[in-house]
Design a protein around this nucleic acid. Structure first.
Length: 633
RNA sequence: GGGCUCGUAGCUCAGCAUGGACAGAGCGAACGCCUCCUAAGCGUUAGGUCGAGGGUUCGAAUCCCUCCGGGCCCGCCA
């Protein structure tokens, strides 16, 4: 919290110095300098003024500093200010006051530190996961789940009302595929004992039936009839399809829950179809003149929509059926609350965090306050869908304008591919290429549970050697938390527009810039507190003046700024990087400065306060990232 | 062909929105540090024409243009 105050102080000082020195008011920036000799903050105002004033920046900086110096007497946060020969104005914070205020704030309200009210209760709808219910999750899906869930946690922590949706395409061709396999190709409905059902369906049914299609075109033909029955929803085939879909979905959810994700609503495509949502949306589109019936050209007889700088997109085929995008537009409109909510809902299950997961259902209840109507709607799908999503955004921006400030946002991210080494372990040689794309249909992918299991096994061995006194059951609990944190952090730490080349061996690293590194720093801090036997609520924090103490405190004081920025730019990565630098600062302090061995009682207590405040700050950050802060590991 | 996107150390990546001071991490390599709060840690060394070229600017990894290289998307499929 206090870093923000520091920046504001510097801004004000510069602002008033401009007027006092007779300079015009210009835009300038106060930021952190690249090295600590340059102080805690730096300002570029002299460069900005230099452009117009025809004076060297260094001279302006010196002038302004002369004006600012006397003002410092009245400022609690900044101790001194220096002009740099290059032209920067550098501010040095009063570290004693920074320590005192920052640690005081954290310890006063531990659970709340880092929460921030930038949301003002605004309703945000987030859709993520949305894996077709005919296979198990692979590491590509994991990126989606972790990204979505972290975003949910960030929004939640900044006072947004968040609804998390998971779209279930229960009436698509992929579902028809597995029904054909079970009903017409003799695949047993129950897989081998002990194998997760989603994994069985994905590997042993979906992949194999697709291989069979190549040799048996008649079998492939059966899909169309099955698909029609599924869409109509009445026949035995349709019921069978619904049962199988549900079984797969249950298993997929178990994987997601294992990663600490949670949802509010499962939105079934079949319900969108039967709700006739499309008809309503189509009326709106027709009224707004955004669609037209083609009377000539290659799209004759189709309803098309004009997209900016794109070819026209077909919404309704010449045979009267709706296309894929024609399902997505009304669904997006529903999310924004532009169309009336046609769904009925019922409880699906209780989740690991105690919350209820609902589903759309034909025999459910109508709701007063729905899951839809977000002022901000975020749809998380990989960037291959970017083109289509852009059209959807454009359409909704046009029909949505009269509805206020509701905004549809596609959050895209690059795909996860597998490294050549990892491909080899799957029995695939990709030759010269460095990576390859995954394919559920071909069975080329790395399974999410497999990664977690492998991580778990490795972590288990590590924890056991370090904690021989703990029971196996406890060791497994810890190992699982480490595995999840390694995976989640790995998926979130890099930029969304960078593809991840997944390598199983590399992903097993528990050292360096990883989730376990963060947990380790936390565990270290907790052991100090535990061994001290003290309950720390206050202290003479102004005694903390060691470099490594100050840098931990500075990191602590930045959490709210980081959160605000991360939420504004929908960038979970920023928070991950922050947690890492916070942990690094603490590890440095841990090496350099003794706490329990310190003989001066007041200094010892102050340091314990620092350790505690660090623990709180890191724990709160980890919680938002979906990583568990471990007392021991 | 058109559109989107990436290119920074051997490898994986921060930094780029809002240009500013000798370009930062992790892994890997070599060498150190546990009679001291968990060595999943910390340190030292080696490693960079920030893809190339041009432009704008007092100043460019960052902005603009061109080019090169990788990836993705462009169906009356979903």
């Amino acid at each position: 919290m206090t870093f923000r105050l520091l920046i504001e102080s510097a801004r004000k000082l510069v602002e008033s110095s401009l007027a006092a020195a007779g300079y015009p008011s210009v835009a300038f920036e106060v930021s952190e300098p690249p090295r600590k000799e340059f102080g805690d903050l730096t300002c570029n105002v002299a460069f900005q003024l230099g452009k117009h004033a025809k004076k060297p920046p260094a001279k302006i900086a010196t002038e302004l500093v002369e004006v600012i110096r006397p003002m410092l007497l009245a400022d609690h946060h900044i101790k001194s200010v220096e002009p740099h020969p290059a032209g920067h104005i550098n501010f040095f914070a009063d570290h004693r006051s920074l320590s005192k205020i920052t640690l005081g704030q954290v310890l006063e309200n531990p659970g709340h530190y880092g929460s921030h009210d930038s949301g003002h209760g605004r309703h945000v709808v987030i859709e993520h996961t949305s894996v077709n219910p005919n296979k198990a999750l692979h590491v590509g899906h994991v990126r989606n789940v972790v990204l979505g869930d972290t975003l949910y946690r960030m929004m939640k922590a900044t006072n947004h009302r968040v609804t998390v949706l998971n779209y279930v395409d229960d009436s698509g061709l992929q579902v028809a595929d597995i029904v054909v396999a079970f009903k017409y190709a003799g695949f047993p409905v129950d897989g081998p004992a002990g194998k997760k059902f989603d994994l069985y369906v994905g590997d042993d049914v979906y992949v194999k039936i697709n291989e069979k299609y190549e040799k048996d075109p008649e079998l492939a033909e059966k899909r169309k009839a099955v698909l029609r029955e599924i869409e109509e929803g009445k026949s035995d085939i349709a019921h069978f399809a619904a049962d199988v879909t549900l079984r797969v979905l249950q298993e997929q959810l178990r994987t997601c829950w294992r990663m600490k994700a949670r949802y509010d609503l499962l939105n079934f495509e079949s319900q969108i179809v039967t709700s006739r949502l499309w008809i309503k949306a189509f009326e709106i589109l027709k009224k707004s003149k955004m669609v037209r019936l083609e009377t000539e050209g290659k799209n004759i007889g189709c309803w098309v929509i004009e997209a900016k700088e794109e070819e026209d997109k077909i919404l309704v085929r010449s045979d009267g059926t709706a296309t894929y995008i024609a399902k997505d537009i009304p669904y997006a409109a529903w999310k924004l609350g532009i169309v009336e909510d046609p769904f009925s809902y019922k409880e699906f299950t209780k989740q690991w965090d105690g919350s209820v997961l609902y589903r759309t259902a034909p025999d459910g209840d109508r709701l007063q306050e729905g899951f839809n109507g977000g002022e901000l709607v975020i749809t998380i799908i990989d960037s291959r869908q970017g083109r289509l999503q852009r059209i959807i955004s454009q359409v909704l921006a046009q029909i949505g304008t009269r509805e206020g400030n509701h905004q549809y946002h596609h959050l895209g991210y690059e795909a996860v591919t597998i490294s050549s080494e990892t491909a080899k372990t799957l029995g695939i040689d990709i030759g010269e290429r460095q990576f390859m794309h995954m394919s559920g249909r071909k069975g080329i992918y790395v399974n999410a549970d497999y990664v977690m299991d492998t991580l778990h096994a490795k972590a288990f061995e590590e924890v056991r050697t370090r904690n021989p006194d703990l029971q196996d059951s406890r060791l497994h609990e810890i190992a699982e938390e480490i595995a999840i944190s390694a995976l989640r952090y790995n998926m979130i730490k890099q930029d969304l527009d960078k593809s991840i080349t997944f390598d199983i061996k590399e992903s097993l690293s528990l050292e360096g810039d990883t989730g376990p590194y963060l947990q380790y720093a936390y565990a270290r801090s907790q052991r100090i507190l535990e061994k001290s036997g003290e309950q720390i609520t206050s202290g003479r924090f102004e005694l903390l003046a060691h470099d490594s103490e100050v840098s931990v405190i500075k990191e602590i004081s930045k959490l709210d700024l980081v959160m605000e920025d991360a939420v504004k730019s929908l960038s979970p990565k920023s928070l991950a990087r922050y947690a890492y630098s916070l942990a690094t600062a603490f590890n440095l302090f841990y090496e350099k400065v003794p706490v329990l061995k310190e003989e001066n009682a007041e200094v010892r207590m102050a340091r314990l306060g620092l350790v505690k405040a660090f623990g709180i700050t890191l724990e709160n950050s980890l919680k938002i990232l979906g990583l568990t802060a471990l007392e021991r590991m």
